[in-house]
Design a protein around this nucleic acid. Structure first.
Lengths: 337, 337
DNA sequence: CTGAAAGCGCTTACAG
DNA sequence: CTGAAAGCGCTTACAG
């Protein structure tokens, strides 16, 4: 076990001060007019000794850790996994490291994660905010810590954010169902006050209304912690009571859960029920009736979030609101009724 | 933007030294026999001022960052996403934060990630090692940095590791195919010298041999960077030339890629070809012929890796080799021939 | 061209 | 019971 070597070790080896070593190793030798031979010698010794700068010391000195915190609902969910991957890649290009935390949509968990990451002096946050976490976000802003919200945001808080154009996406998706002849269309969404859910439900409502389809045939409010059970009940009700002929699922996880139900009850898609999902998933491809879905530009969302955050970290105080466009991937599960 | 408050601020406020504040806030007031009223006063001021300890300073002082590095192939792959999630949860219970890096199975990327995390003084690593990364692992060991390998390991390096019992898993899976009457069985695996692949192929070979099934009917060696193309060619060859009646896929990603091919070419499962996958996936459930697969105990793998790593970080130098048991989930895709 | 020194925010052995 | 001081490994303004 070789002990770590520090600037001091190099300085002592050559018999100079740590200042010189620091200058040279940071490429400031010209500016500081260090003798060329000395610079060369310093670099050689650093190499021989296998010198690796201690980021922790640097961070304490400079106040910047070159680390960003990424808080999302659940890293095991492929939607967030893909988002995290792009964030990781983009951040790393800029020399930043990412620390990920999963909130499970709980504001308590989210608070705990934010606290430990603030202790660790991350330079900024990209947050997929959980319901009820307004004060956590405000707290960061008050402390002057850069933060960008992704996927959703709080209208009452003035932060940069990058989200899908949720209203339009839902409107467009349901319009497609209507055009294809479906009339008794329901939406399966989370019981949530968060803007992305509200906007998706609003898009559904308004297009239904515009087409005089009795506004809301059926709006299911699923509880995050009881997703499978609630989806199951909602689907049974939609089919038996409401006689829905099409269902629009407002997220990735809800869509998958819905597919399991359809399989369980042997419902015919699209014959008995048209199915419109969200986010995309390999399962949508392998389901016997390939699933039509609203595709989100995950890559763009992640890149844009990182860009905005790095901008803030570099001192920009401009607030940006980005709305990204969806793409409707049309397949068999919503064929003409 | 409120400036961060430090121990010094609290000390100055009360007019005492930082030592006292440090003692009290670390719960060492009894031991250090600090006056009860003074302790109370310190705690009050700390609360009023919203004091948050600076982890970076603490880390520099103590040499421990309470952070662990997790290097895996790709966080966007659900297998690794799930692994990461459990690692995150377990680490956080112990007060540790996790930094994740995706290597894409490239030793170059892996080297870069390890270097930056060593700079950042992580306390230890959990690594799903990429091919050719032996020296990186050895480097960590030489530096005395705790490391646990997961999912695979290097037989020539004496590290703790926790992996699936790969030979047995493959043996068992292929035996199941043989029992169900399949004879011309092929395996689709990555072209890789890594132990987990070699063991899976070995399990396949030996059970074929034991049953006098011409050893290896067909072994496809897929290149990681050209997975879809190579799988496509391998499947065409297996079916046309080799006349395979069953295929065993050695990983999660290979299985999914194989399913896409089957869909593309309209192959009947299990009629024309029996299908045996790895790791599990929602797609296995939704494929028209539910897929039989080798299930890995991801939860256990993650927990055990964290436990072993924390043990090492706390000073244990015992090397542990854990082999976990698989479970064969039998369904329609491998029904009696 | 080069060095001594202060300081980032903590902890802790030592002294009183 | 309490404080002064050193030190973790860096950077950098200042002096020479």
């Amino acid at each position: 076990m070789s002990k770590r070597v520090s600037l001091k070790d190099i300085a002592r080896e050559i018999g100079i001060s740590t200042a010189l070593v620091s200058y040279v190793l940071n490429g400031r030798e010209k500016e500081k007019r260090v003798a060329a031979e000395m610079a060369e010698r310093i670099r050689n010794v650093a190499r021989e000794l296998n010198y690796v700068p201690n980021q922790v010391a640097l961070s304490l000195k400079t106040g910047s850790t070159r680390t960003i915190g990424l808080i999302l609902a659940d890293i095991a969910n492929p939607f967030f996994g893909q988002l995290a991957r792009v964030v990781e890649d983009e951040a790393s290009k800029a020399g930043y490291t990412v620390i990920i935390g999963s909130s499970d949509e709980s504001s308590h968990r989210s608070a705990a994660i934010i606290e430990t990451l603030v202790n660790r002096q991350v330079d900024g946050f990209i947050i997929v905010p959980a319901e009820g976490s307004q004060n956590q976000v405000r707290g960061l802003i008050d402390k002057g810590i850069p933060v960008v919200l992704a996927d959703r945001y709080f209208p009452e808080i003035n932060t940069s954010h990058v989200v899908l154009s949720n209203y339009e996406a839902a409107f467009d998706a349901v319009k497609h169902l209507i055009r294809n002849g479906y009339k008794r269309i329901g939406i399966v969404a989370y019981q949530s006050g968060m803007i992305h859910m509200r906007e998706r439900v609003r898009g559904y409502r308004e297009v239904m209304e515009q087409h005089k389809l009795q506004k809301a045939i059926s709006i299911s409010e699923i509880r995050f912690e009881h997703m499978h059970k609630d989806v199951d009940e909602a689907m049974q009700k939609a089919i038996r009571q409401t006689k829905a002929d099409a269902l629009f699922f407002a997220t990735n996880s809800l869509s998958i859960s819905g597919l399991y139900c359809i399989k369980k009850y042997g419902i015919k898609v699209p014959g008995e029920l048209a199915f419109l999902g969200f986010d995309g998933s390999e399962s949508f491809d392998f389901f016997y009736s390939p699933v039509t879905f609203v595709e989100q530009p995950i890559q763009e969302m992640a890149k844009e979030s990182v860009n905005l955050l790095l901008g803030q970290i570099q001192g920009s105080s401009v607030i940006h609101h980005r709305q990204l466009q969806h793409k409707l991937i049309i397949r068999e599960s919503t064929q003409l009724a």
